[in-house]
Design a protein around this nucleic acid. Structure first.
Lengths: 190, 190, 190, 190
DNA sequence: AATGAATGAGGATTCATTCAT
DNA sequence: GATGAATGAATCCTCATTCAT
């Protein structure tokens, strides 16, 4: 029962399957065949739509980053101007981005960025956007907003690692840790 | 003429070669053959000494963690009791553990811990020791030493990620960021 | 709105595209998809019209041989009876059959004839016709017309090889070589 | 029963198997697995020793050309100076180079040279050497030795094609044709 | 008539691992 | 102790071909 316009459907299915497979496996040692089977198609079709394994991975990474971006925008809109930094942090730990499989895939892509230039570029874009958003949000609330933003971004990543490695207390406390440091950074006398 | 006592020498060479190879490559996609060649021996011998690729990786991870532990103990001994937390942080960013190849290998092992139980166990031991040391060092300097320690450990990991991905400013500012947050955590009123 | 009488147009386009593709590539490692794209249609349609890759190749080979035959007939008509052998040779090296892409495809089909019976049959028909034409044309001009014809046919093929492999001087001198040998064969005393 | 110094043995076996396989098949559509099986080893070992399919093919082509060269040198040594051209021709059609499988492989490599630069280089070297040897051998025996050599080389290639395509009379008459043209070229008045 | 969708089969290549010497 | 030899298993990728619309 082949229909027209399957391309976006198939691509979406493959991206989802890739994130799930990598997240479950906890590494990039995932075969195209497995991803394709999970997505309900032959591996040949996966190649047809993406051109190669690397590009499947990239698309999955892009998806994770853009999912996060959407979440962040949503939170930002709902937040009063003076609580924007908190909103961003909350977005980072929103349930959607914070389920174990997604986090695991996320971490894996971080490492991919060490050896794959395209992945590194994606990561840099995401980093810069996050840092820049946080810097803006902190303007007027502390002496060196840019520095504070960098600290928070690094802290968020660090908290992710713990979550990815299933530290039992991590998911629950992560947001608390981050908000507490934010408070310290903004309450500093000055 | 077979030399006696070559075993420790060979193992050491292999462990070093593994770290270097993984660090350079930025991933675990490293062949036993390459590691062995870099260590100056045949891949068959590498298997003979370690039994398999996984165990070579584990040994390398163990080595990175123990190198760090040694550095930390050294700094701790030289530090006055009330500056122990600073000493630990400084140890984390000591040149020996902070050269790009080591950091890259370190990050890679983090991801390995997602899929390899033995690696995860190693990581947990290291994490607990570090957190516990920091907690002790912070006792009396802030209201919730354990919580502060967890924040600092996560922050350190996050700063590592940036360094592993060659963020230009990362290596230089990492230690500054960490010490600044430490200051905030301990200066907090109360 | 499906057009009527498209079949011959489509087949023609595919045959042309096949020759061009094989000629450019210099081998039979040419995909049906590429041929079809060059001919401006889907690969499924190419199959529909020809039934399979082999038959596309055969049709292309047939076309090359028949193009040559047409050229030969044209030259023969314009030649005086005692210059028919020269006319045949000139037809072999006529610009239409002697452009690089055509020659390259021609050579490739020679090799196809080694493994494909249908291609071999085509080749044999062409060979026999050419040899027979030359034999007739040489009757009365040398002692053993059949033998002389065989020599000339072989020589022509050999000159084609050099042209197919881009020997710099080949295209220019080929016809000269062939005519010179023809002269020797017919001037021989007796 | 693994021994030392197997490399040359294995390479030799693979080269022989490649020529045989290509010759029988009549095309380059030959799998490494088949070649390796015929040579009595796994395909992995074939890759280990040659690095890839292309290089196996190249080695086989090199072998065919060098076999021919050896034959030519042998014939040349045994020939009186004024009969050197005949000796070269005879070498070209020596039984060793003229068995069907070798000829078929030879033809196939000609076509490979259309798309593979390394193969083309090999072919050019062989062509130049043959042409140059023939030119020397013809010096003093005809007015334009270089031109005569070019004609003979092309003729030899053309006669090969017929043999590769199993023209029934080809093998037997080829040498006769070539020698006859040689005679014409050298007997020409002047 | 025409095509996008889909796949099965097959091939090159890589690599951890084993074994005889 | 040490190694060259050897391989089986696995993986990415390609492509001719089929099918429903």
């Amino acid at each position: 029962m082949p229909k027209l316009g399957m391309e976006p459907v198939r691509r979406e299915a493959l991206v989802r399957a890739t994130i799930a497979e990598i997240g479950e496996e906890g590494s990039l040692d995932v075969t195209v065949a497995r991803i394709a089977r999970r997505a309900g198609m032959s591996s040949a079709l996966a190649h047809h739509y993406f051109g190669g394994k690397d590009q499947i991975f990239l698309a999955a990474m892009r998806r994770i980053l853009s999912d996060f971006g959407a979440e962040a925008r949503r939170e930002l809109k709902a937040a009063p101007p003076q609580r924007r930094a908190e909103a961003i942090i909350r977005a980072c730990f929103a349930p959607a981005s914070f389920d174990p499989v997604t986090i695991s895939a996320w971490m894996t892509f971080y490492v991919l960025a060490q050896s794959d230039d395209a992945a590194l570029r994606l990561w840099r874009i995401y980093q810069r956007r996050l840092t820049s958003n946080l810097t803006h949000a902190l303007r007027g609330r502390c002496r060196d907003p840019r520095q504070a933003a960098q600290v928070l971004v690094a802290l968020i990543d660090g908290l992710y690692i713990r979550a990815a490695l299933h530290e039992p207390d991590a998911p629950g406390r992560a947001i608390g840790h981050a908000l507490r440091v934010l408070a310290l950074l903004t309450e500093a006398p000055g």
